[in-house]
Design a protein around this nucleic acid. Structure first.
Lengths: 364, 364
DNA sequence: CCTATTCATCGAACCGCTTCGAGAATAGCG
DNA sequence: CGCTATTCTCGAAGCGGTTCGATGAATAGG
């Protein structure tokens, strides 16, 4: 009937054996010019296209990459458009290497574990990318026992291949900018220390100060949940008790909470307190004042995660992590631009981008 | 030797034929109680888990659903966290029906077409979900010719199964709220008419006015691109030339552009002009004033799209579209003195809002 | 001129599962 | 008790590819 043509049909039409057809179709050696031509022609005429599943079953590769995402950290994702960018980057790398991306979203860590296991058991993927590894990392054992290639997005606590933002650099860039704007008393509103990225960012904050020969006042290091309300409260409480002229916030949403608190206490932003934050989002673009932010390049995070995973699958040993540099996007909140941006231009008003020095973050 | 056990191993250990093992394992009838037990036990002992690929090849189903997304409309996605929500909803429905989700992102419509074709040829999916169908809809022919089940997200121009926001309702809800706040001269900043959702929303706008017995002034229907800058320009130009006390904006970003323009001209929001917009996002939550918005429930959009697709795959004929209702989230920009109402959802950044001015005494 | 390689092709086995048709055993019924 | 249904089990034939080992033919080497 209308059954789509198989390689057997092609072989028959070309007058060759199935095995020969397979070789020809796949560009393998040991096929004469004419034979190859005959086969290709037959395939063309028949409108032949290989059956993915069959191919995969036969050669034992699924050509599938699984993305495991415990969405419990959803706000982190959703807020930053993180997820979309990440996925796009992953998708591009996957496409470059002929892989497919399949999604495994989990509402909880337990569910994430069971999804990892299901993927392993069903042998439905050649490798796994796991975002937001937690401290416990319960799947690690399974992954290692079954020798299934995997890459984490985000720095895990235990040793494992991972791709992450260069969070030390990220905050260093942000703080350095504030220093360059002339500030020396810079508060840091960090996220909860349970996240490795917050730990790393604190290092960057200190590094920037040290670099500039500025004293480091531990009292200026604050911390709040990633919500606006939490940030508001912390800043509301701590701001009056300290001397500072600038604030570096761990996220766009925290920055907004902080700014509201500051304004409520009579500080003007950026005149009295300059603000720079992490995460370049719609919010930082459209907030008033628009927020100077460190862009995390989530796209490349996803891209390199897949790249790395593919390398692992191909048996290349690449132990050291990939770190994605951040990039400063200067807007109004840091107060270093005399004029507010041109109104009505192309949306957010063209921001000034400051290129970070290129990190040689990729090995080969 | 560490080869994972196959159904043959199970059969052998249970002392039955492979075919019997298969029946037992899959809970099919015509297997005696004891035999079934023996097989299950053997499987358990061996740690047997079926090989997805083999299963799929054998019974001709891939258990894969493809998501085709032309990302050209990325800003639409990214800005609303649209994509993440959509995907989560899709994922949930897919999981409920035992399907897998595989991603096919395209940077252009051409690429989308080729991805659709590739998916069809490779027979790698049982069905396709296609977001943002365009007017031309070039894949439609292929889809129909190959009889592959598909569902659109967004109303297509041609006839086809689709799931969409109930865009007429969406704007009707928003405008109705403004009317209830006492406004009668309500401007509408719509998006480009090339999008079906903009067309629909205009209908809703008119319906709301008509319902309330208010006159409809065509001069108050404006339109701009979905960017802040475009919105700013349009409002900047048109606002002074018309009498109005409220504005309904087609998106969060447009609303921000409009508000900036209004403020630049000396209008206060919400005192002089009340604003309500479509899209409940981080931006609407955290902007000052926070924006009253119609939440689009993208999660359910994704959920129902998959649900519908599965129905189609199962051969149920369900021609009429699924329309997802919107939901009004009242905040400050409409000026109607919002209650501290609980927002639907998980509370990430929900209006546990701390109000800077009025409530400054509440702190702590 | 004869043998050792290399090249080109083929048939068969296989990947791991489902399903079909057939046969044996048991049950139902007049 | 004989005959048809029903229940249970089995072997074999796919699903649509890849890959291995064998077989000639062509080429090269001595």
């Amino acid at each position: 009937m209308n059954r789509s043509p198989t390689i057997r049909d092609v072989a028959k039409r070309a007058g060759v054996a199935v095995s020969t057809a397979s070789l020809a179709l796949n560009g393998k050696p040991y096929v004469s010019r004419e034979t190859r031509f005959k086969v290709l022609q037959a395939a063309e005429e028949l409108g032949y296209h290989p059956h993915t599943l069959a191919k995969n079953l036969a050669d034992g590769r699924t050509r599938n990459l699984g993305l495991i995402t415990p969405i419990s950290l959803e706000h982190l994702f959703a807020s930053a458009g993180f997820f979309s960018c990440l996925i796009r980057g992953m998708h591009r790398a996957a496409a470059e290497h002929g892989y497919n991306l399949s999604l495994h979203i989990a509402e909880s860590e337990d569910e994430a574990v069971s999804r990892v296991r299901a993927a392993i058991r069903g042998r439905s993927v050649d490798g796994l990318i796991i975002t937001n590894p937690t401290v416990t990392c319960p799947y690690l054992r399974d992954l290692k026992r079954h020798r299934i290639p995997f890459v984490f997005i985000g720095r895990p606590s235990e040793e494992a291949t991972y791709v992450d933002n260069d969070n030390v650099e990220v905050s260093r860039i942000g703080v350095r900018h504030l220093i360059e704007c002339g500030h020396s008393r810079i508060a840091f509103l960090n996220g909860p220390a349970q996240f490795t990225f917050c730990v790393d960012r604190l290092l960057g904050y200190r590094a920037a100060l040290a670099e500039a020969g500025l004293p480091h006042d531990e009292d200026l290091v604050w911390s709040s949940d990633l919500t606006e309300g939490a940030a508001y409260q912390v800043v509301w409480e701590l701001a009056p008790r300290h001397q500072f002229t600038a604030l570096f916030a761990g996220s766009d949403v925290q920055a907004v909470g902080a700014i509201r608190a500051l304004q409520a206490q009579g500080f003007r932003v950026p005149q009295d307190v300059a603000v720079v934050c992490v995460n370049n989002t719609d919010l930082t673009r459209h907030f008033i004042p628009s927020l100077t932010a460190v862009d995390l390049h989530e796209y490349w995070l996803g891209y390199w995660a897949v790249k790395r995973l593919v390398q692992t699958i191909d048996g290349e040993k690449t132990e050291h992590p990939v770190l994605i540099p951040g990039e400063l996007v200067v807007r109004e909140s840091c107060g270093c631009q005399p004029e507010p941006q041109a109104e009505g231009g192309d949306g957010a008003g063209a921001p000034t981008r400051i290129k970070p020095k290129r990190n040689s973050h990729q090995g080969g």
